[in-house]
């Protein structure tokens, strides 16, 4: 249910970026989520569709990249994928692991259109 407030926060940051770069239209927003982000992909998509008309331009596309839950084992140093929320190293069995991805809600990149004001023509 908190997807709505997270997407609001996402769009505020996208708007700031669009403004800084003088965007006339935001074409695409690319984000990354994972199993421990604590959001449901469909609800993020729905919230985005509801809120994104506030962005410059129209029909902004949201691309969601889903990454696995990855960790580094502090005992043996191996990089592992955490399956089924079993927080144990698959190589040595240690539970002393550090999550490296799949637990955040990341804004990866923003594709915008800008008006050319320098007189340079497009090829």
């Amino acid at each position: 249910m908190h997807e709505f407030s997270l997407v609001k926060s996402l769009l505020r940051q996208v708007n700031e970026i669009a403004e800084q770069h003088g965007a006339t239209c935001v074409e695409e927003v690319k984000i990354e989520i994972g199993p421990l982000t604590g959001v449901e992909k469909i609800l993020v998509q729905e919230a985005f569709e509801l809120l994104s008309p506030d962005l410059p331009g129209s029909d902004c596309r949201l691309t969601i990249i889903e990454v696995p839950l990855q960790a580094i084992c502090n005992s043996c140093g191996k990089s592992i994928v955490v399956q089924n929320f079993q927080f144990q190293c698959t190589a040595c069995g240690s539970s002393n692991i550090r999550i490296t991805s799949g637990d955040a809600f990341r804004l990866l990149d923003v594709t915008i259109d800008t008006e050319l004001t320098t007189g340079v023509t497009e090829p």
Partner: peptide, 17 residues
């Protein structure tokens, strides 16, 4: 019009954190 992709790669909750 010119199209630009701006790389951000930031946790959206970074500021609140």
């Amino acid at each position: 019009m010119t199209k630009t992709t701006i790389r951000v790669n930031r946790d959206i909750q970074a500021e609140k954190r």
